[in-house]
Amino acid sequence: MEIWNKIWSFIQSANLRTLGMLVGALLGLLYLCVGFWKTLVFAGFILLGYLVGRWLDSQEDWRAVVERLIPNKSRD
C-alpha cells in the first residue's frame, strides 16, 4: 500500500507536463505491444501528452492556441 502513497505524492507534486508525458508513454506502451511497426504512434502519444500537459500548465485559451497555429490570413 505504501507504493500507492508514493505514486500519489508524486502525482500531486509533479507538474502537468510531466504527468501528460507519463500518460502518453503508458498509452503508447499499450499500443506498442500490439505491434512493432506502430512505434511512430508511440512517439506521437508521448508528444501529444507533452503538448497537452504544457497547454494545461500555461492555462492558455484554446482559441489563442488555434489562432497561433492557424493565423488569420484576412487582408485589409
Rank of each mutant, 00 (worst) to 15 (best):
L30C: 11
M21G: 08
G49T: 04
C33Y: 11
R68N: 09
I11P: 00
I11V: 12
W62V: 10
E67R: 12
L19T: 00
G28L: 05
N5G: 06
W55T: 13
I3A: 11
L32W: 12
I3C: 05
W37M: 07
I3P: 01
Y50T: 00
L30G: 09
V41Q: 05
V52F: 15
W62A: 14
N15H: 13
D76R: 09
E67I: 04
W8Y: 13
K6Y: 10
E67S: 13
E60F: 03
L51F: 10
R17Y: 06
L47D: 06
S13Y: 05
T39H: 05
Y31T: 08
Q59T: 00
N72S: 10
V65S: 09
I11E: 00
V66P: 00
I3M: 09
L16P: 02
N5D: 11
D61P: 01
G20D: 04
F36Q: 10
G53N: 04
T18Q: 14
F10G: 01
L32I: 01
Y50N: 06
T39F: 15
L40N: 06
L47G: 11
E67D: 15
Q12Y: 03
M21L: 07
W37R: 15
F36Y: 13
N15E: 12
G53S: 06
T18E: 13
E60A: 13
A64P: 00
L32N: 04
N5T: 10
A43I: 13
L16Q: 12
N15D: 15
S74C: 06
L47N: 08
K38A: 14
Y50P: 01
I7V: 15
D57E: 15
L47R: 09
L22W: 01
L29K: 08
Q12P: 00
L47A: 14
L16E: 06
F45R: 01
M21P: 00
G44I: 05
I3N: 09
R54C: 05
L27T: 01
G44P: 00
L29V: 02
N15F: 02
G49F: 05
D57L: 06
C33V: 06
D61F: 05
D61V: 07
T39W: 14
L26P: 00
I7D: 03
L51V: 11
A14M: 01
V65F: 14
K6T: 10
W37F: 10
I3F: 14
N15Y: 05
E2F: 15
P71W: 03
K6E: 12
S58T: 05
V65R: 11
Y50E: 04
N72H: 11
G24K: 01
F10I: 04
K38F: 14
C33E: 10
V23Q: 00
L27I: 10
L32E: 03
V41N: 10
I11K: 00
P71M: 05
Y50D: 06
L29H: 10
F36A: 11
S74P: 00
M21S: 07
L56F: 09
W8M: 13
R75T: 02
K6A: 12
A14S: 11
